[in-house]
């Protein structure tokens, strides 16, 4: 690797490694598997940088989305279909010492949600469970799960001040 590219790659990895690894280990729950996921996330992001569309979000958001998708693939490959979202919820509730991306409003909004809305949102967004899988796991009718997720996300959207035309 040319020295300039190597410097840029090193800076890229150093800047985001704790966020990428933190998300991976939170989802897959295993340090070795999380490192595999995190490594692959950086490799894919670096090699497919041209596909990044700034209109779709910030670089860390894009990188974390790649990490989430890889983490979901990993837990499916390892047949971890029954997920306990509580450790993740506890991690999400903790305010970080610094908040460089202004996540306070979203975190506060998430914590205000009733558990029956918060749990399926976490299971869907972080663990990639379908609404059918969530309904089966939580023992709740499919329609109820869909309604809870939709209402919960609408509240979070309000917390972020994102526009809505919800009818």
């Amino acid at each position: 690797m040319a020295s300039g590219d190597a410097d840029a790659a090193a800076a890229f990895v150093r800047r985001y490694q704790s966020r990428v690894y933190g998300l991976a280990v939170s989802v897959v729950g295993d340090s070795g598997l999380a490192e595999e996921v995190a490594q692959e996330a950086f490799v894919r992001a670096w090699r497919h940088a041209a596909t990044y569309d700034p209109r779709r979000g910030r670089v860390p958001t894009w990188l974390l989305t790649i990490t989430r998708n890889l983490s979901v693939d990993a837990i499916r490959i390892h047949h971890r279909h029954r997920i306990d979202p509580e450790p993740m919820l506890a991690g999400l509730a903790a305010d970080p010492p610094v908040d460089p991306f202004g996540s306070h409003d979203l975190r506060a909004g998430l914590l205000k949600l009733p558990p029956e809305q918060c749990r399926p949102i976490v299971l869907s967004v972080f663990y990639g469970l379908t609404t059918k899988e969530i309904a089966d796991q939580e023992g709740v009718p499919l329609g109820t799960v869909k309604t809870r997720i939709r209402r919960g996300l609408a509240k979070l959207r309000d917390a972020l001040g994102v526009g809505s035309d919800e009818r």
Partner: peptide
């Protein structure tokens, strides 16, 4: 989608094992 993507940023940060950066590079 914006809300769902932003939620991912709430995951707690954690330093990876020693040597992670070298292995990625």
């Amino acid at each position: 989608s914006f809300v769902a993507d932003e939620l991912l940023s709430l995951a707690p940060e954690q330093e990876p094992p020693s040597g992670f950066e070298d292995r990625v590079l």
